[in-house]
Design a protein around this nucleic acid. Structure first.
Lengths: 151, 151
DNA sequence: AAGGTATCGTTAGCTGTGCTAACGATCTCG
DNA sequence: CGAGATCGTTAGCACAGCTAACGATACCTT
């Protein structure tokens, strides 16, 4: 029965991916700390910087988080001057989040520091492995997107 | 300069992996919650179940966490009857952690539920993509191991 | 044998992230 | 105008991560 085998493979792979994600983040968290930004803040700031002005609710959805959680993340970023809140003129229920110049700078610097460890490890790979891992990352992203759509 | 390009590729890849890990865990956390076990507890329980009796310190190192953190994780698992502490006869400073039968059962059930969402998504892949993603997962694990060995 | 040092696990206390419930403010639509 | 929907915030809970400090135990050197 080949479907049995497929299912077992899928389960084993899912488990490996889960475990890898946990351990990867534990390593990178140390680098995040060096920049003074936690992983969730860095991730949210990244969305704001690259996704332009965005409402808090949209940001929460983008980060797969409930609004109260995003409120505090944004508050933390704002306290550090990386982001600022601005009410929407049209709909005054909305809070738009803008990246400050400092926020953009810190993001770039933080990102470089954050991925340095991982990038150093990546650089030790051969060209073939680099391509294979890149393909894996792409597939993983697509997988996550498909999970989100299914929900 | 080809090294420039390599560096840029490595950085972009590191960034993708980081982002993917964050979003993957956010999705799976919902399934973890359904089993009553958080991701760190599930991960620690898994090590105990499959890694046999183990000291708290070894468990902390295996999970890339400081001892006080592991103390609380184990306390939570013990309170749920999934694990039990037992002093080592030889070296009475050590606390050995044992999985209970209930712990083993819960791990299996929790794991199945946890990876179901991810496995469903994985099963939608073609055979080629499945193999590619498997290769990516393997490389990622090796990458993490090499990061751990580095420092 | 004894005393100093090292190791192990725990406790205490801080920060940050996640949630739900409830609320006030605002918009929308009948 | 008023009822209901939507948005962000506040309050309060649980958990996970850390450092610092401590008691208990083991080890080692004298």
């Amino acid at each position: 029965m080949t479907s049995r085998r497929r299912e077992r493979d899928a389960l084993a792979l899912a488990d490996q991916l889960h475990s890898a994600a946990i351990h990867l983040l534990r390593h990178l968290r140390k680098e995040d700390d060096a920049s003074g930004l936690s992983a969730p803040r860095l991730s949210a700031l990244s969305v704001v910087v690259f996704g332009g002005p965005i409402t808090l609710g949209q940001l929460a959805r983008a980060e797969q988080v409930k609004p109260p959680t995003m409120t505090r993340i944004v508050t933390g970023l704002e306290k550090d001057g990386l982001v600022r809140r601005k009410g929407d003129k049209r709909d005054r229920r909305l809070t738009k989040i803008y990246a400050t110049p400092k926020g953009e700078k810190v993001l770039v610097a933080g990102r470089a520091r954050r991925v340095e460890l991982l990038a150093r490890a990546v650089e030790r790979l051969g060209a073939t492995e680099l391509a294979e891992l890149g393909r894996g990352a792409q597939l993983l992203r697509e997988l996550i997107d498909s999970m989100r759509r299914e929900q």
